[in-house]
Design a protein around this nucleic acid. Structure first.
Ligand SMILES: [Zn+2]
Ligand SMILES: [Zn+2]
Length: 673
DNA sequence: TTTCAAGGTGACA
DNA sequence: TGTCACCTTGAAA
């Protein structure tokens, strides 16, 4: 326990501040809450633990339990464990900066630093005062530290390491082989030996990749030796091009929408807002039109990948005539597939890849009947339906009697429901000790086992969770059973894909090159994983030993969708708000096959309500870049579509995304319903 | 309204 | 890589 404990007893900092830049005016705390563990838990029961191990465990727990929350129930944390030997540390006061007698300078408050951002960046994680300022040890390397960084008790060094890694999207590989792989010990002395394992540990102890703000302060970056502040004339596009808009672009892109919701007093639902809502709806629908292709195509229509996914997801920020360009560029892609393209791949391929497709196709078709029975082809609203502008036309057609209470914000409700889903899922999958359950611990991160994940029981639970999640949408629950089933089934595929990528993004899977599943297991997509696959060739899940082919079949398609979908989510800093809104928009697809005219009108009204509340949600929180956020959210659809299409041809993808059995279980449940 | 201080950031050794 | 000065905000005073 004795470490040199350098400069931690530092003289109090000259200043103390709190940070957040590139965060639009106003607050987004609701949103920030979405990211965090909603159930802070007292761990008072853990007093009297003395061993090193229980100390570590309880610290870890504390890290989880103290995961940021802004509206913590008033739990008394005063009984939290302070291990005795800590008292001997010569750092009596380093944890508190109070009473240092130095005034907060705020010296540059009058200097105008232009907000960089149309981007809503998460504010710093906060927590109860009673939780902070204690002598603690870094959960990663066990050096003494005073505080939380990125949501976990950690030291400055590990914090910096984590921030750099995430911000620069670094990838590390653990060189240890076999069972030692990714299990290197991380301590103060050897924390630098294996960066892969250090990063893994950072994530395991609860450091949150989404808390990193990689593009902060790009505008008017501070100069250490320069008293003057500089504010640049225009925002600099970020490396990925997605985050910062030239103001003119922003204006052109979002047009009247941005103006109409940008600077007026809070909106109240009512007649006065009709025009605004109409423009919101039109805007959102046009974005859907932009995405063009249906999210789900018919299962049977196993087209060849002649249409390749765009190399990266477009975002609504690049060029100011981007939208127009895409309109024309897409006109080709919109053409119906030719007859050749429609032929199942089994007939056309003769190389190795073709053989694999035959193999997978056979597996796949085992349940073709049930999968097919309910999945009618779906088309996207704009497709074939010529509706460029979807202003709510004749209101007679739109019966609002089915809609929820006007005072309720559907998005808010849905976001809460999604938080509940997440907590339920955690309880389902986390180890079943009371410590884990109460401590808010997440399920153990481990390699995925597709077999286990696709067990009927598990899938049933997942479907139940989703059904419960959606049940807060009264327009949905009020529908006839058949209509509900039709919408639910149509949603299942994009839901699986979207949520998996979303969960992956939240868990840092993009940085670690892995797909993270709902139970926190993961599918590794690194080169090391490829090597392991090769070793298993012929034995386990697949008969292949050719590395190039393994890569092509097992790794590349998943890497692609990880980059395209998760990458886009990461770039826009997607939150539960956008995720839930997108799910709802997809769910309420009036063009879903099999709906009656009356239902169609209800569904359309419900979708409009989603847009309406989505924007109201932003508006009420003073989010300035709402139109960008909506736009970027909608632009995820082409990438999701590409993934869905690729999945038709790749059984491995179907398994990773839980698509195949998911559908089967859906059918079963629906039949019993 | 003012003050405090956590936990972000980029710069630099 | 680790440490520093600097920064903005939410909450307490
Ligand atoms: Zn550390
Ligand atoms: Zn390692």
């Amino acid at each position: 326990m004795e470490f040199p404990l350098p400069q931690l007893s530092l003289p109090p900092r000259k200043n103390s501040y709190h940070t957040l830049i590139s965060y639009p005016t106003g607050n987004y705390t609701e949103q920030s809450n979405n990211w965090i563990n909603p159930s802070p838990v007292s761990i008072q029961t853990e007093v009297n633990l003395t061993s090193e191990e229980s100390f570590a465990i309880s610290k870890k727990l504390e890290g989880y339990a103290a995961r940021p929350h802004l509206r913590a129930p008033s739990i008394d944390h005063d009984e939290q464990i302070i291990v005795d030997d800590d008292d001997s540390l010569p750092f009596g006061d380093y944890v508190t900066h109070s009473g240092n007698g130095i005034k907060n300078l705020h010296g540059n408050q009058n200097v105008i630093v232009r907000s960089p951002s149309p981007v809503a960046v998460r504010p710093p994680i906060r927590r109860d005062r009673s939780e902070i300022g204690r002598k603690q040890r870094c959960l990663v390397c066990d050096t003494v530290t005073s505080g939380f960084h990125f949501g976990a008790v950690s030291c400055a060094a590990c914090s910096a390491f984590f921030r750099r890694t995430i911000a620069e999207r670094r990838e590390y590989t653990c060189r240890a082989e076999g069972s030692a792989h990714l299990k290197c010990e991380i301590s103060a002395e050897q924390r630098c030996y294996c960066r892969a394992c250090r990063l893994q540990k950072c994530i395991d102890v609860g450091m949150d990749p989404m808390a990193v703000q990689p593009h902060r302060d790009q505008i008017g970056a501070k100069r250490k030796h320069d008293g003057q502040r500089h504010s640049m004339e225009s925002p600099v596009p970020s490396a990925d091009g997605s985050l910062y808009l030239n103001p003119r672009i922003e204006e052109v892109l979002s047009g009247r929408l941005a103006r109409s919701i940008g600077g007026s007093p809070p909106l109240k639902r009512g007649k006065a807002t009709t025009a605004l809502l109409a423009s919101n709806t039109a805007y959102a629908e046009q974005l859907i039109a932009l995405s063009r292709q249906p999210v789900i195509s018919e299962r049977k229509a196993a087209t060849l990948t002649t249409r390749h996914a765009q190399s990266s997801s477009p975002t609504v920020s690049e060029e100011n005539d981007n939208v127009v360009q895409r309109e024309s560029a897409d006109s080709d892609a919109k053409k119906p597939p030719t007859l050749e393209e429609k032929l199942p791949s089994v007939n056309n391929e003769s190389n190795d890849e073709g053989k694999f497709i035959v193999y997978e196709y056979e597996l796949y078709s085992g349940d073709e009947g049930s999968a097919e029975s309910g999945s009618k082809p779906r088309s996207w609203p704009s497709e074939g339906k010529h509706r460029i502008s979807l202003m709510p036309q004749d209101k007679n057609e739109t019966d609002t009697s089915n809609l929820p209470d006007p005072s309720e914000n559907v998005i808010e409700t849905l976001v809460s429901a999604y938080e509940r889903l997440r907590e339920r899922r955690r309880l389902l999958y986390c180890p079943d000790t009371i410590r884990d359950i109460l401590g808010g611990n997440q399920p153990v991160s481990r390699p995925a086992d597709c077999g286990a994940r696709m067990q009927k029981q598990r899938l049933r639970q997942e479907v139940g969770l989703v059904a419960e999640f959606l049940s807060v949408l009264t327009p949905f629950t009020n529908l006839d059973l058949d209509d509900k089933i039709a919408l639910f089934k149509a949603l299942s595929c994009p839901y699986s894909i979207l949520e998996k990528h979303y969960v992956t993004m939240r868990g840092g899977g993009l940085q670690q090159n892995r797909i993270i599943h709902n139970d926190n297991s993961y599918t590794d997509l690194t080169d090391a994983a490829l090597d392991r696959l090769q070793l298993e060739g012929g034995k386990a899940d697949h008969p292949f030993t050719d590395k190039a082919m393994l890569k092509r079949v097992f790794i590349d398609p998943l890497r692609d969708s990880l980059q395209e979908v998760t990458g886009a989510m990461y770039n826009m800093k997607m939150t539960d708000v956008e995720f839930c809104a997108l799910i709802a928009v997809i769910l309420f697809d009036p063009s879903t096959a099999g709906l009656s005219d009356a239902t169609r009108a209800h569904v359309r009204a419900a979708r409009e309500r989603i847009y309406e509340d989505w924007f109201l949600y932003y508006r009420s929180r003073n989010v300035l870049d709402s139109s960008q956020r909506v736009g970027n959210t909608m632009l995820l659809l082409p990438a999701v579509q590409a993934t869905a299409e690729k999945s038709h041809e790749n059984y491995h993808m179907v398994r990773v995304f839980d698509l195949f059995a998911y559908d089967k279980i859906l059918d079963e449940i629906m039949l019993q319903a």
